[in-house]
């Protein structure tokens, strides 16, 4: 039942309760994260060998999007105390008292079950199983366990965001073949520089909330060095799909040019004076463009190399 229960944090009772709107529930799904997940899932469907009925592809993508949204809702349920303290997340529906935590949990659990069962019933069990595992990984392994425990939280937790193209692939082939995991690897190695760039200029927020992000625990200098290190690994991983018959000349050109741009910004960030975050902000913004653009190039043109 949707109620108007007020959420209270350690800082005391927050905003006055009011009826939640449909938009508040939509916000629980983290629509911006969902759009990236949906897009990479779509590319997984498109580049997978074999065919799938267009209606089934749409159903698979809806399931991926809803499953990702459900994970977001459960993340907001568990992290409501952190969200209430952080500037960036203070306006979310639970800290503002528009949605009660247990309602967010119920909403997330219901959508998780609906998306996994629909995927299993209509698409295939491999995609459904991986979708269920992704939700479990994001909610239990990352949100409940790693996020507050270790400085490696987003390195390991980043896997959750890397599964969608593999789920899309599995929706078509019914299997979890090796080529799909090259897309996983790229997102997995992209996540640390992306999040640490954000964490650099939001480190005060994370420190206040007690989240052991890299800049809070190891300091700025170490974070900037690790961003460069992971950027190199990510750049190397961006060529991996080519060896498995995914991506043509346009993708290769994109991987080189966009990767060079990514590395340039990462190096500028490394050289930047401590306490200034101009290049951190640029890297955060560019990293989103980088992933969108690179994945958008994957389906174009004949494959440069034949699958092994």
């Amino acid at each position: 039942m949707m109620s108007d229960i007020t959420y209270s944090s350690d800082e005391g009772s927050l905003a006055a309760s009011r009826q939640a709107s449909a938009g508040d529930y939509f916000a629980l799904l983290k629509p911006r994260v969902m759009s990236l997940v949906l897009f990479t899932g779509l590319i997984g469907v498109v580049v997978a060998p074999g065919g799938i009925h267009p209606a089934m592809a749409v159903i698979a993508l809806i399931c991926i999007a809803v499953g990702a949204g459900a994970s977001g809702a459960m993340n907001m349920w568990f992290d409501a105390d952190i969200d209430a303290v952080m500037e960036r997340t203070r306006q979310r529906p639970i800290p503002e008292g528009r949605i009660a935590p247990h309602e967010a949990l119920t909403f997330g659990l219901f959508l998780s079950a609906a998306s996994v069962f629909t995927m299993g019933l209509l698409v295939n069990l491999a995609a459904a199983g991986l979708l269920a595992f992704t939700i479990f990984f994001y909610v239990v392994v990352y949100t409940m366990w790693l996020k507050r425990l270790t400085v490696q939280n987003i390195v390991i937790g980043g896997a959750a965001g890397a599964f969608p193209p593999v789920i899309g692939w599995a929706a078509v082939t019914g299997g979890l073949e090796l080529p799909a995991w090259t897309m996983f690897l790229l997102i997995f190695l992209w996540t640390p520089p992306h999040f640490w760039a954000l964490a650099l200029f939001r480190s005060g927020d994370y420190a206040q909330a007690g989240v052991p992000m890299l800049p809070v625990v190891r300091g700025e200098k170490s974070t900037r060095r690790q961003i460069v290190g992971y950027s190199f690994l990510m750049l190397a991983a961006s060529f991996a799909p080519l060896f498995f018959g995914i991506g043509g000349i346009a993708y290769l050109a994109g991987a080189v040019l966009l990767g060079a741009g990514f590395l340039f910004i990462a190096f500028m960030l490394l050289r930047e004076q401590e306490g200034t975050y101009r290049w951190a902000g640029r890297l955060f913004g560019f990293s989103i463009f980088y992933l969108f653009a690179l994945f958008a190039l994957l389906p174009f043109g004949p494959a440069l190399m034949q699958a092994a």
Binding site: M2, D4, R18, Q19, A20, S21, A22, G23, Y25, H53, A55, M56, I59, I62, A114, T118, L121, L122
Partner: peptide, 29 residues
């Protein structure tokens, strides 16, 4: 508050209709 509740009800109705269509189309395919 009334307006928000109506908005929620509409959203639930739309989501249910979409779900029914999705299951129907998937089954036909």
């Amino acid at each position: 508050d009334e307006k928000r509740r109506h908005g929620r009800n509409r959203a639930i109705a739309l989501a249910l209709a979409a779900f029914v269509i999705l299951i129907f189309v998937g089954s036909v395919v």
